[in-house]
Design a protein around this nucleic acid. Structure first.
Length: 925
RNA sequence: GCGGAUGUGGUGAAAUUGGUAGACACGCCAGACUUAGGAUCUGGUGCCGAGAGGUGUGCGGGUUCGAGUCCCUCCAUCCGCACCA
């Protein structure tokens, strides 16, 4: 009987579904294990071979853990709100829900082909009202929370309100943006609206006028992580800075804990560094500078307070609120011109224009807090309004940007470093001795920093401060296809929709575009279209893409619960995700936000853990190999080995990779029917009559015509072959180009495995006594496989199976015990074929995945002899089989007595002989 | 500029604590079987060399009896961040 993978795979897909093989329920008698994939956004393009890479790895691991006796939660779902469906809706008028559903069906079909062990009964979709009901509910918890810096946790806003009623905000330890101070009687005298305006400055989810990244082409704001190189991540449209009233999340409150938590989780250093970098902690001091002839003060943040005596000017961001107030009359025009010019520049222009130094003098002077000297105040767009305080004390001798600014505008550059030459550039090293600095003279940087901060704190000039680059996350989007907020407005005051009225479902609209007044699409919905109609109006913004994905891993634990986002007992059973697999592109988006929400839910007592993903692996990207053909000036297509040296007038065209033969030659007839432009194409073929293309590695994408789909490969080789081949390609974390050629090796391996059980076309295993060789092959494989899986080395696992099958074939082994255990070992990698084999051995069994994993027995690997490699000066020359009972001294004696050794000694006597028992012999000449 | 990762045959790669470099595959070469084969099987295959042998893990140094692995300098590629005070 041949290995008819198609029939086998179809059969088991059906039976697994019928038998609910992968359904899992909480079982207190078993240890749990939670294996999660980053759920996909179901795009219209479907899956290519790169997408399932991580799913295959997680599936293998989930099945392995299950065979090891764990109760494994391994769910899948869809991150189904998002821009592409909405853009498509704008173009076609088709409701995004319909497109999304179609795409999900297509994804599901493709995923099913691969034989994953997902418990589909737990599927979640973020765009499903029964799901986003709880996204809205969590938003409400965030709205009703503030951050208490003394307890270092989020708390119910009621606690804060009670405090305000008792003593105002004079002694509060809550984190806030509130500049107003009030006592209890003042608070109690506030109107509802005034109270809410104050509370907004404390809430974890808050409404505020803030600088946002506005993308005019998409008609919405974007979070920082949604912008790549100054343009939108989706679509690549330009982004500008704009002040708008927006919902935000006070993620800054968690900066330190997000940093600290990284110490406790098993993620790669690369990813942790990316998050650390994004959070951007820097220690320094906040210093207040008085302004001449003004009561205003300028607060600056500096990481180098030790250089305070080197300050020769100050620079404010053009948008700094004090600029207009302090500018002198004669400079006002210049300043305004500069401000306008800066405002016109997009973030991208500013970035592109780093070398171009610009700025303007305000005409005002600051007073140096220690020397009392007058310091000119400038504005310049190299100072960012959104970082620190939007103002810097410029120390040109110690900072290159300040140095360049000073040179450009002819400002003084006093040197405060002993023995440092600053005639060419600033001295920015973190080691040195301070000079010309009054009480800091002679101190090194570290002690000077401590000393000056102490002095500042004593005189009330400033204090030590830690600053973070992380900014609060903008949470509203002016889009249709997202979660509506559970918020309405009454007299301009935002109010929460009551839990009983959740979910606030997405209302139908007549178009998925902003209104004429520039309001978000939801403003188009008539009152009657809303699931609830409260106050003067509902909130028209929707939540960003990361809202639903920040907590979905919790919903899998209890996806149908309509009383809570998940049952506390189930949450307590499954806890964190033990293994999370997905791409590294989410480093500063999803992975940060999910950690943030988890910490808030933890603080508020809803869950018992404050990190969502205890181990995370980033799978590498599978790249495509594009096919490039050359069209000559004569419009003929040249085989790449027929190109003239002078390629002038030649152009390159990309050809669909499906049109290639294995030797990279084009199937010419297929090409002619592929696109009309090639219908009458003429060719310059090579000596073999072929037209060969050049292969180039690109991202796998439709636009490069280099997409390889899992469907085609499943059809041709079967899912088991594809699964194993994807693992065999190389280490999971590594990016690598896809090359279908090698797949035949894995496919013939599976056939070879199949043949172990079949002699002369019939299935046959024997109950004889296993041979020591077979036991050795098996147990070597058990050990290797377990080690490999424990370190997520899936590629070497596949090799081990090949070695084992090669050895057993060599030994003509068809012993039942050996082959059974091998089959269980292989089942996580190749579930269909192994399940089929298992059913042939055990017709009564419902699934191989109810068996238990083989146990390694070192006794079978014990050897009595060892082939010692004998090296001379570290270079291996020959091998010598010796009894392992020989001691090192005995080994040395035997080795030295051998004629082989004498030959390599060339009459010399060895200086030294090193014998490592059971490892190596090295003779030093 | 800062941070991270990676450099090993024609190709994908392996070598887990310093101990036989290139496992396992693809490809290629030779052969067997075959009407045929994109089937199956056998043997070979880092490079130089007829051979003995030499040489070899991005470059250059170092530590060691012994280095792909540890240390230092440099180079290249990829990724992330970036006028962050």
């Amino acid at each position: 009987m041949d290995y008819s993978f198609k029939a086998i795979e179809a059969k088991w897909r059906k039976l697994w579904q019928e038998r609910n093989t992968y359904k899992v329920t909480e079982d207190p008698n078993k240890p749990k294990f939670y294996v999660l994939d980053m759920f996909p956004y179901p795009s219209g393009a479907g899956l290519h071979v790169g997408h399932p890479l991580g799913y295959i790895a997680s599936d293998i691991y989930a099945r392995y853990k299950r065979l090891k006796g764990f109760n494994v939660l391994h769910p899948m779902g869809y991150d189904s709100f998002g821009l592409p469906a909405e853009q498509y809706a704008i173009q076609t008028g088709q409701h995004p829900a319909i497109t999304t559903k179609e795409n999900i069906n297509r994804y599901r079909q493709q995923l099913d082909l691969m034989g994953f062990s997902f418990d589909w009964s737990r599927e979640v979709r973020t765009s499903d009202p029964s799901y986003y009901k709880w996204t809205q509910w969590i938003f409400k918890q965030l709205f009703n929370a503030y951050y208490d810096t003394s307890a270092n946790k989020a708390r119910d806003i009621k606690t804060l309100v009670a405090q305000f009623e008792k003593e105002g905000n004079l002694y509060t330890t809550a984190l806030h943006d509130c500049e107003q101070q009030f006592d209890a009687s003042a608070w109690n005298a506030f109107t509802t609206r005034q109270k809410e305006e104050v509370l907004q400055q404390y809430r974890m989810a808050y409404l505020a006028e803030s600088w946002v990244n506005w993308c005019p082409a998409l008609g919405t704001v974007l979070a920082n992580d949604e912008i790549v190189n100054g343009v939108s991540e989706r679509g690549g449209h330009p982004v500008e800075q704009k002040q708008m009233m927006q919902w935000s999340m006070r993620i800054k409150a968690y900066a330190e804990r997000l940093l600290e938590g990284l110490e406790r989780i098993d993620w790669t250093d690369a990813l942790k560094e990316q998050q650390r970098n994004w959070i951007g902690k820097s220690k320094g001091a906040s210093v207040h500078f008085g302004v001449k002839n003004s009561s205003s003060q300028i607060e600056v943040f500096t990481t180098r307070p030790d250089t305070i005596f080197g300050v020769s000017f100050m620079v404010l961001a053009p948008e700094h609120p004090l600029v207009n107030e302090i500018s002198s009359a004669d400079q006002a025009t210049t300043i305004q011109a500069y401000q306008q010019q800066a405002a016109l520049k997009t973030e991208r222009d500013r970035q592109a224009d780093v070398k171009n130094i610009t700025g303007a003098f305000t005409g005002a002077y600051a007073i140096h807090p220690f020397t009392g000297e007058e310091i000119p105040i400038w504005i310049g767009d190299y100072v960012l309004a959104s970082y620190g305080t939007g103002a810097v004390m410029a120390v040109p001798c110690g900072d290159q940007r300040d140095y360049d600014f000073a040179k450009h505008f002819g400002l003084p550059i006093p040197n405060i470093f002993a023995d440092q030459d600053i005639s060419e550039s600033a001295f920015a090293e973190k080691e040195g001795v301070i000079a010309n600095s009054d009480f800091l003279n002679g101190l090194d940087i570290k002690s000077a920093t401590e000393r000056v901060i102490a002095e500042m704190e004593k005189n009330g000039i400033g204090q030590g401060k830690t600053n973070y680059r992380l900014r609060d996350a903008v949470f509203s989007r002016q889009r249709y296809w997202g979660e509506p907020f559970p918020v309405y407005y009454k007299d301009g005051v935002p109010m929460l929709v009551d839990d009983t009225q959740l979910p606030v479902t997405l209302p139908e609209v007549d178009a998925y575009l902003p209104t004429e007044n520039g309001e978000p699409p939801l403003a188009r919905a008539p009152k009657s279209a809303w699931s609830c109609q409260l106050g003067d109006r509902m909130e028209y913004n929707t939540m960003p893409g990361w809202a639903g994905s920040s907590w979905y891993f919790l919903r899998y634990m209890d996806p149908y619960n309509d009383k809570a986002f998940a049952d506390p007992e189930k949450l307590a059973y499954w806890k964190q995700v033990d293994l999370y697999i997905g791409g590294s592109e989410h480093a500063t988006g999803h992975l940060l936000y999910a950690r943030f929400w988890t910490k808030v839910l933890f603080d508020l007592g809803f869950i018992s853990f404050d990190e969502p993903f205890s181990k995370l692996i980033n799978q590498g990207m599978i790249l495509g190999k594009s096919a490039i053909a050359f069209i000559g000036p004569d419009q003929k297509m040249y085989s790449s080995d027929m190109l003239p040296t002078n390629k002038e007038g030649f152009r390159e065209v990309r050809i669909l990779v499906d049109l290639l033969n294995d030797d990279d030659s084009i199937q010419l007839d297929a090409l002619k029917t592929w696109q009309p432009q090639f219908t009458n194409q003429e060719f310059v073929s090579n000596a073999q009559g072929k037209v060969i293309v050049k292969r180039e590695v690109d991202k796998m994408s439709k636009r490069w015509y280099n997409v390889v789909t899992p469907d085609d490969l499943c059809e041709k080789y079967g899912a088991d072959t594809l699964r194993m081949y994807e693992m065999f390609l190389g280490p999971l974390e590594q990016s690598k180009p896809w090359d279908t050629k090698g797949i035949t090796g894995v496919h013939s391996f599976l056939k070879k495995y199949w043949r172990l059980f079949h002699s002369k076309g019939t299935f046959k295993v024997l109950d004889n006594e296993p041979t020591p060789e077979a036991l050795k092959s098996l147990h070597k494989t058990i050990k290797k496989l377990t080690d490999d899986l424990d370190r997520f080395s899936f590629n070497t696992g596949v090799s081990s199976f090949m070695i084992c099958v090669n050895e057993l074939t060599e030994q003509k082994c068809n012993n039942r015990l050996i082959l059974e255990q091998l089959t269980i070992l292989m089942a996580p990698y190749a579930p269909h074929i192994c399940e089929e084999i298992w059913s042939l051995i055990h017709p009564e069994a419902s699934s191989i995945f109810n068996e238990s994993y083989p146990i390694f027995n070192p006794a079978f690997l014990q050897e009595s002899t060892f082939d010692y490699p004998v090296s001379f000066n570290g270079k291996m020359r020959f091998k010598l089989s010796l009894d392992l009972s020989l001691t090192a001294t005995e080994v040395e004696a035997v080795v030295l007595s051998k004629p082989e050794t004498q030959k390599w000694l060339e009459g010399k006597s060895p200086k030294k002989v090193i014998v490592v028992h059971g490892k190596i012999v090295n003779i030093v000449l």
